[in-house]
Amino acid sequence: MENLKAKSFALRQDVVRMIKAGKAGHIGGDMSVMDVLVSLYFHEMNISPENMDDPERDKFVMSKGHCVEALYAVLAAKGFFPIEQVIEEYSQFGSQFIGHPNNKLPGIEMNSGSLGHGLPVCVGMALAEKMNKSQARVYTVMGDGELAEGSVWEGAMAASHYKLDNLCAVVDRNRLQISGSTEDVMHHDDLAARFAGFGWNVISVDGNDVDALNAAFDVAKTVKGKPSVVIANTTKGCGSPVMENKAPWHHKVPSEEEYSQIMSDLEERKEAALHE
């Protein structure tokens, strides 16, 4: 079986290369969310380049669209496009690989970028799958700063009203946003209680532990009559002490020196995961 923990660090290296070459990107969130995406794409979801025309495929919307670099790395690893093409073209003039998800690219269902859209869109998708009597499941990943958007809670309300147990949302709870701590900007400490109050099944896990995430998604699938949210408690910048838990790394482009250190730290984490 593939070592997904090691894969997660290898894909982080792809992201860092991408951001260094494109001189742009939301590196901190890319690092925090990577394990969630790896778990979803390589353990949980039935999504591949071969089944994108199959209505029964699972559906995914990257609601925290600014972390598209992590999604590009994962989609490339799934075979949707070559990673070298992404690294070469990302953020360049005329490129299809822009700084937020765009469904002109294979593997991307919906365009995002403005926050608070993913969950309500997924409510529509999950409703449609119920109407179509499809077994497909619907997933979205939101940031924790994103939860200040009111539209998230409109979606949360409707998801439980319509008992959408085929819908699973993930919150990348890295506790930092562009201005600083989420708890200083707009607090979300009672997040589990909020979702529970809206009628959701809530699962809290270590969001940088692929095994824990895999287990959480397995449990979410068994819960009937209500949607599930996985609160993935993560570290922003996860993988290198250069970036970890440092707000300026929300969208910082590493210098040559930082780049070398980050790549070396990620290599070390990857090797450690391989020998765990």
């Binding site: 919906m110 608070g116 309500p120 529509g124 998708m125 409703l127 449609a128 499809s134 409109e154 979606g155």
Partner: peptide, 14 residues
């Protein structure tokens, strides 16, 4: 807002 986003999700699924 939800009305329109849900509509888009429905449309995406046929």
């Amino acid at each position: 807002q939800n009305l329109v986003s849900i509509s888009a999700g429905l449309a995406k699924c046929g």
